Computed example of a mutant assay.
Amino acid sequence: MDFKEKVLQVIAEVCEDDVVKEEHDMDIFDAGLIDSFATVELLVQFEEQLDINVPITEFDRDTWNTPNAIVDRLNELK
């Protein structure tokens, strides 16, 4: 499993919906797949499963809103 697939898997687990594995440009906030509580869980899972620490202060909903955007941001942090 490559990096992008791992990230998509984490997002799907937190969102509890595999649609994010197919719709990479879907706004997961607008779609109602993730809320503020799930956002924290997402960041925790990135650290636990991918060993990438994303400070909550770095997380901006406008730039972390799609699976593709999340993969891009994590690539910058790894």
Rank of each mutant, 00 (worst) to 15 (best):
D2M: 05
F3W: 06
F3L: 05
K4N: 09
K4L: 02
K4H: 05
K4S: 12
E5Y: 04
E5P: 00
K6E: 03
V7A: 03
V7C: 04
L8D: 00
Q9P: 05
Q9V: 06
V10I: 14
V10N: 02
I11Q: 02
A12R: 04
E13T: 11
E13Q: 15
V14N: 07
V14D: 07
V14H: 04
V14R: 06
V14A: 10
V14M: 12
C15N: 07
D17R: 11
D17F: 09
D17L: 12
D17M: 11
D17V: 08
V20T: 06
V20S: 02
V20P: 06
V20R: 01
K21T: 07
H24K: 15
H24Y: 11
D25P: 02
M26C: 07
D27S: 14
D27I: 05
F29H: 08
F29C: 09
D30H: 11
D30I: 11
A31Y: 07
G32T: 09
L33G: 09
I34L: 15
S36L: 09
F37E: 11
T39D: 04
T39A: 12
V40C: 08
L42N: 05
L43S: 03
L43H: 03
L43Y: 07
L43C: 08
V44S: 11
Q45Y: 12
Q45C: 14
F46E: 00
F46V: 00
F46R: 02
E47W: 08
E48G: 07
E48Y: 03
Q49P: 04
Q49Y: 09
Q49H: 12
Q49N: 13
L50Y: 01
D51N: 15
D51V: 08
I52H: 05
N53S: 15
P55I: 03
I56F: 13
T57I: 13
E58W: 05
E58I: 07
D60E: 12
D60V: 13
R61G: 12
R61N: 10
R61C: 10
D62C: 08
T63S: 14
T63N: 10
T63Q: 09
W64K: 02
N65P: 07
T66Y: 04
T66A: 09
P67F: 01
P67C: 06
P67R: 03
A69E: 10
